[in-house]
């Protein structure tokens, strides 16, 4: 089973290297272990995260792609859909039935034909458009809803921090 996962992850890595989506770099930490990836996500243009470069780790299960990976930002990111410890909480990282925060019925879910690329593109959309309905960080969701100016300030702080300024 793990053999099938490695084969698939190698194919995905190749695909991401040949046709990298804008604002995303991702690949295995070292080529000995295809189950741990590092990713860099650029903050989307025209949003309060613009200019930031946010590092994250992806951890794949042995039965990938039957089950989805987990994703965790390794930098500070104040965002409604990111737990305070960095774990990303969006619908595509969960199979239906695994409903940590009761996603909307139309939300895109994990299935074996999804891919790392689809996840990372969803994460970029999530940065651009937080979903305060299913909040992993309640403070960030409240702030996004009630005090947008403060939210943007905290986002810009994350951007500066991500660039070591």
């Amino acid at each position: 089973m793990a053999g099938a996962a490695v084969k698939r992850l190698m194919a995905e890595y190749k695909q991401l290297t040949l046709n990298p989506p804008e604002g995303i770099v991702a690949g295995p930490q070292d080529e000995e272990n295809y189950f741990e990836w590092e990713a860099l996500i650029m903050g989307p243009e025209g949003t309060c995260f613009e200019g930031g470069v946010f590092p994250a780790k992806l951890t794949f299960p042995n039965d990938y792609p039957l089950s989805p990976p987990q994703m965790r930002f390794t930098c500070d990111l104040f965002h409604p859909n990111i737990y305070p410890d960095g774990r990303v909480c969006i619908s595509i990282l969960h199979a239906p039935g695994d409903d940590p925060l009761g996603y909307e019925s139309s939300a895109e879910r994990w299935s074996p034909v999804q891919s790392v690329e689809k996840i990372l593109l969803s994460v970029v959309s999530m940065l651009a458009e937080p979903n305060d309905e299913s909040a992993a960080n309640v403070d960030a969701a409240k702030c996004w809803r009630d005090d947008r100016k403060l939210f943007e300030e905290r986002a810009k702080k994350s951007v500066r921090k991500s660039l070591n300024l």
Binding site: L66, S67, A95, P96, G97, S106, R109, P112, V113
Partner: peptide, 19 residues
């Protein structure tokens, strides 16, 4: 039922394992 599109139904009820 539930006003889902066919694409949504397939993504949520057909393609994932264990459904």
């Amino acid at each position: 039922d539930g006003g889902r599109t066919m694409r949504e139904f397939c993504n949520q009820e057909v393609e994932p394992m264990g459904r």
